[in-house]
Simulated assay, not measured.
Amino acid sequence: MALPSHCAEETALPVPCKVNLRLAVGPRRPDGYHDIDTFFLPLPEPCDAFFIRRFDEPGDIELSCSDPELETDDNLVVRAYRAFAAATGFSPRLEASLKKRIPHGAGLGGGSSDAAVMLRYLNDRAGEAALAEPGLATLALALGADVPFFLLGAPAMATGVGECLIPTDPGLSGWHAAVVCSPCHVPTAWAYAALDAARTFPAKAGASLLTSVFDANRRAFCVTGAPLRNDFEPVVFAAHPELGRVKERLLALGAAGALLSGTGSAVFGLFRQRQTAVMALADLSGDGPRTFLASL
């Protein structure tokens, strides 16, 4: 008769999200990707939550999720586990429960962050099989362009497809981010295709285009010497005008700057005073948007 499994460890882990303080996008490359110049800022809210049970014997991952539609082998958490196991041979049996609070399709990187937390969890327990940071980052990039940033876990400027990271202090300590997540979903592939269709580039390399001076945002709020900018705003706001109205409202309610995050649909505002941010979110909350407050 088989002996009962022994749970070696139970771990609860928070999963942060991100916003982009800047997102400049170059033309489509021959490989289908785009060069970007971005500034990633991690936020503690909204966050997902992991509860992981690790067993002594080798095996696979069993993932349960508060959103049953995400309980598939194509989930980035499952893919991260299996990619790490294939690369290292370390494959403990895991029961992983994921509570989703980061909205899907909001430009906040929830799936990428989930994957990064799983990679870090496994690498911290892999002993002699653990990967050095460059190898772990390479594994992360194969899962998604944002995953290496979430492995880093700190504010960073990023180029390439987002994998060339330079940790950078944005100087926002003591500030507050008000995040507004509207019900609409903006598919990333659609946003890139719409951006490509909406503009033309001069005949020069995409990387050099991203070194030009950034366009001034209305009531521009400067971070690291450049105003807030997101190249996706014109096409996303045209398709979803309610998101543009959220940005306008955040500015009217006292945000020093406001911006679409990633390809959307989340819009965030930066506030010097917590109470002002709280009042702004109270104005914007209701039956539609989900709102979150993050202290930086």
Rank of each mutant, 00 (worst) to 15 (best):
G160Q: 05
P68I: 13
A87F: 10
G110P: 01
P92Q: 08
H104Q: 11
T72E: 13
L210C: 12
A220S: 15
G111K: 05
T263Q: 02
V235G: 00
L195H: 08
G286R: 13
N75K: 08
C17W: 04
F271Y: 15
A220N: 12
A255V: 09
S261Y: 02
T72I: 06
L98W: 02
R219H: 15
P234N: 04
L152E: 12
A220H: 15
D56R: 11
S113L: 05
E71H: 11
T200G: 04
G254M: 06
S97F: 12
T159W: 09
D231A: 15
R249W: 09
S212E: 15
D48P: 08
A8K: 11
A280E: 02
G171Y: 12
T188I: 12
G171L: 07
S173Q: 14
P92S: 12
G264F: 05
V223L: 07
R79K: 15
R54L: 11
R229W: 09
G107D: 00
P170S: 04
A156I: 02
P134V: 11
G288W: 11
F150T: 02
S5T: 03
P92N: 09
A194Q: 08
R272G: 07
A2W: 01
L3D: 03
T291M: 11
S112A: 13
L260P: 08
D196C: 09
A137Q: 12
A255L: 04
P134N: 13
A193H: 09
F84H: 10
A255R: 01
K204C: 13
R229E: 00
R53Y: 10
K18T: 09
S64N: 06
P46K: 10
R274Y: 08
